[in-house]
Amino acid sequence: MSTDEGTGEVNHRAQTVEAYRLWWQHDAHWYQGVASRFGQEAANEINAEALRKIATHVGQRVGRRSGALPGTGDSRKDLEELRRRYDECGDRMFPPELRNASTEVEGDDLIVLTLRRNFAITMVRMAGSLDGYRCPCTDIHAGWSEGLGVTLTENRAESCLRDGDKACRLLMRVRTPPPSDRTEG
């Protein structure tokens, strides 16, 4: 087992981050292989489908851990709690070392995710597949929402790092009021 030089203590966080990086490198090369053999459209579809399934699972876990959405009647407070849960989903799927993201509530039904750095884009670019790559962000958000028991009435990217924008600005408009109880387990 590797240790932090000179201290004798295992640096678990560094090992975890390295494992993430290796899996993301694997993912970028896997995407490249599928794209070269079956076309980029197939690679994009398979990638989005797989990430949505993972995101749904993550949303379900966060939902179980957090309990039912409060349904306080104060839509701003309820949306803030949902925003916090989306942040937790993001942190579970993508460690902060690999991305720079923040969320905020705008209005009575909109959560905006701003992504200033995305390790996946970096890895796909390094693998030479960025030109035809389609970001699966909206599929991830749809999965989180499904897992959390929330219906989105809008789920779209307003800007995207992949397109050369300075940040991704992703809009998740929530059906109001958010459900106060969850049916999935």
Rank of each mutant, 00 (worst) to 15 (best):
Gly59Asn: 09
Ser36Thr: 07
Ile54Asp: 15
Val58Ser: 12
Asp27Glu: 15
Gly73Ala: 04
Gly63Asp: 07
Ala55Ser: 11
Arg84Gly: 14
Leu79Trp: 02
Trp30His: 12
Ala50Met: 11
Ala50Phe: 06
Ala50Val: 15
Phe38Ala: 10
Ala50Tyr: 04
Arg85Thr: 08
His29Asp: 14
Ala28Glu: 02
Ile46Tyr: 00
Glu45Pro: 01
Trp30Tyr: 13
Val58Trp: 06
Thr56Tyr: 04
Gln32Ala: 11
Leu69Asp: 06
Thr72Glu: 03
His26Thr: 14
Ile46Lys: 02
Asp78Ser: 06
Leu69Lys: 05
Asp87Met: 07
Ala50Trp: 03
Ile46Cys: 04
Trp30Met: 13
Lys53Trp: 09
His26Phe: 10
Ile46Thr: 08
Gly63Tyr: 03
Thr56Phe: 05
Ala55Asn: 01
Asp87Glu: 15
Val62Trp: 05
Gly67Phe: 14
Gly63Thr: 08
Ala68Leu: 09
Gly63Ser: 14
Lys53Ser: 12
Val58Thr: 15
Thr72Lys: 03
Asp74Met: 07
Gln60Met: 11
Ala48Tyr: 02
Asp27Arg: 12
Leu82Phe: 05
Gln32Trp: 04
Gly67Val: 15
Gln40Val: 14
Gly67Asp: 15
Arg65Tyr: 09
Glu81Lys: 12
Glu41Ile: 03
Ile46Met: 03
Arg52Asn: 09
Glu81Pro: 00
Glu81His: 10
Glu41Leu: 09
Gly33Ser: 10
Pro70Ser: 10
Tyr86Asp: 08
Gly71Asn: 15
Arg64His: 09
Leu82Cys: 14
Trp30Gly: 08
Ala48Pro: 00
Gln60Lys: 15
Arg76His: 08
Arg83His: 02
Gly67Tyr: 14
Asn44Glu: 02
Ala68Gly: 15
Ile54Val: 15
Ala55Arg: 03
